[in-house]
Design a protein around this nucleic acid. Sequence first.
RNA 1: GGAGAGAUGGCCGAGCGGCUUAAGGCGCACGCUUGGAAAGCGUGUGUACGUUAAUAGCGUACCGAGGGUUCGAAUCCCUCUCUCUCCGCCA
Length: 423
Amino acid sequence: MHDIRSLRADPAAFDADLARRGLEPVAQQLVAWDEERRQAQTVLQEKQTRRKALAREIGTLKRAGADSAELEAEGVALRAEMEALEEAVVALERNSTALLANLPNRLDPGVPAGADENANVEQHVWGDRRVFDFTPKQHFELGEALGQMDFGTASKLSGARFVLLRGALARLERALGQFMLDLHTAEHGYTEVMVPTLVNDDAMYGTDKLPKFADQSFRTEDGRWLIPTAEVPLTASVSGDILDGATLPLRMTALSQCFRSEAGAAGRDVRGMLRQHQFEKVEMVSVTTPETSEAEHERMTRCAETVLERLGIPYRRMLLCAGDTGFGAARTYDLEAWLPGQNAWREISSCSNTRDFQARRMNARFRPKAGESPVFVHTLNGSGLAVGRTLIAVMENYQNADGSITIPEVLRPYMGGLERIGG
RNA sequence: GGAGAGAUGGCCGAGCGGCUUAAGGCGCACGCUUGGAAAGCGUGUGUACGUUAAUAGCGUACCGAGGGUUCGAAUCCCUCUCUCUCCGCCA
């Protein structure tokens, strides 16, 4: 959500930001509605003042046993006038909100121009891509050959885009989640949180998943939503709050199941477990002051990178261009892991600074110092990491010629000391 | 799922159509008092929006949320959400 005041102050700059995302200008319309609304509201408030006075006078007269018919008649007339004004104010507010709720966040000036992922800018690459003396296989070839990754049974149970893991591979998925949580809590200062997986409309709206992306998530019959990411409950946990500035930054992490309808992704990544309706993810969320969110964004991205570095998986950091930056984000880094079986870099983490965009939607503020006015917090979210995709990256990078998979050192304590799967 | 009771300012708690401009208490801030402190006394104490150069004033709204009745609603009516108690079921 945007601040109508800053929009009013510089409508041209606002439209210029929209244009970077390929959107039509709207500032003129919004400013006009706002102007109209404020005028109507001022008049309405004058009438409310009169209503208050009238009611008091009538009360005084009644207590004195005097006649108040004339004043009561004025009250009836006043109410009719107020009804129309009130409707106008509400309608103008509704129009503005409906339009604003569907406008994406303003981009950081440093976000490069561009329409799609081809214009994303590589920031740096980490790790040496392993040289294979055999043709590396894709994760699903490895997993199915091991008999531990079963798409057929999953589709029998649930349909397409689900997977069932067995044995050591199932444990490896669990090990990855534990490892990531332990790293972020023990070394990165995040507090572990166990979150609800079903949330209400408010939580989804606050984290900008509604109203625009309703078709991307699953809705229950009683009107709740299966979370598309733990970002939703983690971030919305501070909705409506006025936090003590001294407690910031808040750093939270959660391992959760995530559910996505993948509407519009038909035909994309149909093989394997890269794109599923259900997957596990360790999410990081930070709540900061406006002054520190930029540094926090770098820090958070480093936390995600550290996971890949400890696992020994080559990756590159991409700064997303204007056209590829998500709806709620001002600036986003994607981490792409190297997948030898696919011979491609694939997204494994996305770290975004939403600045005060989500904070406005969910009314999350902090008080800088006692006695000062509340200020909107900045919220950031990042995957640290997508567990299913990390499983893929481990399998493909650590595969052996015989189809077995060496377990990275850091995961062995979580695997009961196991060094290799299969072979 | 059934029966019942609730939701009031940072907290406790009164009010149950107009005399509430939400009593009283606690907490907090400032001042007076004091050698210093406590006690005591005094003053202040939220959020949003409008107006404004203003985070100064002034105004309006807000007593869980949304509707309604009324000249006037914390108070009456309706719907919803949440909390608590008891019963049933259950990991």
